[in-house]
Design a protein around this nucleic acid. Structure first.
Lengths: 231, 231, 231, 231
DNA sequence: AATGAATGAGTATTCATTCAT
DNA sequence: TATGAATGAATACTCATTCAT
């Protein structure tokens, strides 16, 4: 049951991004969706400045002016795409608590946390997610508002969901310590090394499954040393 | 005297970066240094694509052709600057072990680790360092080689230095566990939250000193729960 | 009684212009009128090239295609507006002779001419009239036919009306000289300086009433020195 | 003696305009001069908005960027051209008083004034001068500062020179009345009709010499009726 | 008759780079 | 080595006009 990590493959992410902004149904908005899809891919691959509106129009098979009719300017298109994608992160955050619903007071939390850690890490290591992160970080000084808003809506919301999870586990007598602190420590024990590596190594093959699992397990071990309630 | 965090102030960093590439003093190659210094500041503030060679030449008070005489093209200049700056990180890594030189077998490691964590965090939170990180991450898909080389020489080298530190502490019977794992966990417990925040919030005021200290102390506590040798 | 100068206020002029082309009242062709009105204001304020059909459609609250359905193209719309406005000038010319209807042979022409001069000058100094003049002059090389046609129908017709007036006054023994020459001299003595100034000073406050009156009076004095019949 | 009207022919005016702005000598500034010359002709023929920078560069046989290297932007180029041309007007104004230097107290002013009027009218009717006037008037709402500055430097300065002339003639007992009023009345009696016609009739053949002379003579007659000192 | 969406050519301006001196 | 002037290709964005509905 545990790891549906593959439901965040590239294509699907792009489609979700494309749907985020407005109604679709393939009718008159087909062009708008095509633009969003094309622009998303191009921005992720080439960056904001590296992508020209000509390119976007060409890839979307649309005239340049249609791009401008739909999105006032390049900045607006960019912002709409970036904020559109947060829906994915929000969905992920909303699903997080489900990971531990079955855990009872008498159980050992470790397996549940390993599963959670694994899912979390797999999601973040998705190449598209990494590329998005790079994109936003790289444009943070050009779009400071957008960057901080993204952070608030995506990574910070996931952290809040984690804190919620840990708070409930504390209620059941399984963990101790401040839930927000726990969330941060958990998150960066799990993600830290791989995310750091992923930010700087664009062309590397994705981390193989067993390595992901090992990293998750190890992070959970250290985390529990600090936060497991002594029995 | 513990934390000489201030030796990484903005101006100095730039100067160090500027000197990294070709160690000439004033002389006729002052121009080269001027170009590097100007370009470093501009790249950090405006990004690679956001900075024009006109601007660089203007800020360096040099003709545009001089820039091309010295650096073949913009990419070369950029790469040389980025790799030049790793010298700073290497120096930092080289100094890390000194932090714990005085720790004896009978001592408590906690104060030394707190000091180390604080220094580490302060260094990484320096606005210039954050800007450099953003810059390289943002250009990682345009300069993949450069990004991974930077990572290898700077953050990874610091991790190796940390691993070395922890290995020595293990030898003295103060810590347990795999030193490399310990280094990663330590690093991301310390840096994780603040670095993540710093990547996305460009305009925020820098984290105030007491908060930095608290974060460092908390990270050390969790770290030691997992890695302190049981006595 | 004397000077109904105010019947050439801004709003009214626009409305008159708007109605000039097709005399429909509200109904389904209210759209046409709305377009004309919107375009008139925009052309006067921003010029022909400075006004886009998008803007016209937006201000008229009409779709862009509706503009094209009604007016074939931008040039046609412009021409129709310019020629529509000549109706105003023609009306003005037609009313001019009334100014001196009451003058009898024994009377002094001076008061009547002063009143005429004042009304003439006030009319021409109306900001909308000045803007229209600037507009047509500025587009004269793009629309040579239109410009000369406008001149024929508007300023030249007023000159003809003046000549008619002076001819009648000559018949009553009050003036001498060629009526056409008199009309020209009168017109440019009255209008010359203010009109010249008005063409080049867009943002200036309108000439204050007393100054208008003084200019008119002075022009009449010089005119009469040349054209009053010696008694 | 009287009429050197032909020294203001088209080509020469353009050259003078071109020389107005900065040093030349056909050396490295040859390109700058070429740009100014090309732009002057294009602006006069097609207006500001109707002339593209591509066109300017093409006609000047220069790359587009060279245009931007020499003149920050299109507006700057336009302004420099317009203000450059005022030098011509200033020269004309400075020479005006020479027209009447030979007039003695006992002489009849009429011949001198006729000559002056003729020269004045011929100059203003030059097609290039008319085109320049149309250009500035047409762009007055886009460049209000420029338009009023031009008026101050060119037509207004000529009026001041005329006032100076009339003041000196009054000193010699030949004229009466306020010199400034006299200047205005003279100017518009002379120029009025032809200038008005010229603003709106772009393609017309230039006014034939005899007609110019007649117009000048007639204007002087009316002027003297109002301003000749009664003896 | 009216619309919203679309188009292709054109706008001013800037780019990284090179040439003549 | 250093420069100022020059280049051609690209930039984001706008234009007048037309098509499907």
């Amino acid at each position: 049951m545990g790891e549906p990590a593959d439901n965040t493959r590239t294509d699907e992410l792009i489609i979700r991004i494309g749907r985020g902004a407005s109604g679709d149904s393939a009718g008159p908005t087909g062009k708008r969706a095509a633009i969003v899809q094309a622009a998303t891919g191009l921005f992720l691959r080439q960056g904001y400045q590296g992508t020209s509106t000509d390119q976007i129009a060409a890839v979307a098979a649309v005239s340049k002016q249609t791009v401008y009719n739909q999105f006032r300017d390049k900045k607006t298109l960019f912002a709409e795409i970036i904020l559109g994608v947060t829906a994915t992160a929000e969905r992920f955050a909303a699903e997080l608590p489900n990971e531990i619903t079955g855990v009872r007071a008498a159980d050992d939390v470790e397996p549940a946390l390993r599963s959670l850690a694994h899912r979390y890490l797999s999601t973040v290591l998705n190449p598209q997610v990494l590329a998005l992160r790079r994109l936003i970080i790289g444009e943070a000084s050009r779009f400071p508002e957008l960057a901080s808003e993204y952070h608030r809506r995506a990574p910070a919301r996931v952290l809040a969901a984690l804190a919620d999870v840990f708070s409930r586990l504390a209620d059941r007598g399984l963990l101790t310590g401040d839930p927000s602190d726990a969330a941060e420590d958990f998150a960066f024990l799990v993600l830290g090394p791989a995310l750091d590596h992923g930010m700087f190594h664009v062309d590397d093959d994705p981390m193989p499954e067993p390595a992901v699992r090992r990293a998750a397990d190890r992070a959970v071990a250290v985390f529990l040393a600090g936060y497991r309630r002594p029995s």
